[in-house]
């Protein structure tokens, strides 16, 4: 999806306003994921990992929750400066106005469809704003990093895992 020029300008203005707000809200730096952040990340994982996640809702929910746990672990391993930036991004995305204007997602995260979230991810991926492009990049790397770190995801890609024996 290529955003129209008007959309682009609107997103740009709203984005800078909201980001300065979120910087202020999250001035304290990194902290544990809130319930709202977990819901938001769950929605992102559902879209990002479409094609790898099972269709069974119970299984899917469990694996998404595990991936969100993995994202939290990954964030704790980043530099404090990067943790703060990620905290700002998450703090922003859970705000309803940001979700609506920046991400273009009308539903609350827990109710957003895979198609709706995918469209949001694609718009940030293709954005002309480096801020949104890098935010997409961070969400991409955190999600796939958390997913493929787990041995139970390897069978689907034919990776046998590290060799065993004689160690």
């Amino acid at each position: 999806m290529i955003p129209s020029r008007r959309q682009f300008i609107r997103t740009g203005l709203a984005g800078s306003l909201l980001l300065s707000l979120s910087g202020w809200l999250n001035a304290a730096g990194a902290r544990r994921l809130s319930v709202a952040e977990r819901e938001m990340l769950g929605a992102l994982c559902n879209a990002m990992l479409e094609g790898m996640l099972p269709t069974d809702p119970v299984q899917r929910h469990r694996l998404v929750a595990l991936t969100v746990d993995g994202i939290a672990v990954e964030i704790a391993g980043l530099s404090l400066a990067a943790q703060k930036e990620v905290g700002e991004l998450f703090g922003l995305l859970v705000l309803a106005p940001a979700r609506l204007m920046l991400a273009g997602v009308g539903q609350p995260w827990h109710a957003a469809s895979v198609a709706e979230v995918s469209e949001f991810l694609q718009s940030w991926r293709a954005s002309r704003l480096s801020l949104l492009q890098t935010a997409y990049g961070a969400l991409h790397d955190l999600t796939f990093g958390a997913w493929y770190a787990r041995p139970d995801t390897w069978e689907a890609i034919g990776y046998p895992g590290p060799p065993k024996g004689y160690f």
Binding site: M48, L49, E50, G51, L121, D141, F144, G145, W147
Partner: peptide, 21 residues
């Protein structure tokens, strides 16, 4: 390796999954 490759590979969703398979 799975993490290095999947994070370097562009895209997401089914398109990404197809390459990962």
């Amino acid at each position: 390796h799975p993490v290095l490759f999947s994070t370097t590979l562009q895209g997401f969703g089914e398109a990404h999954a197809r390459l990962m398979r």
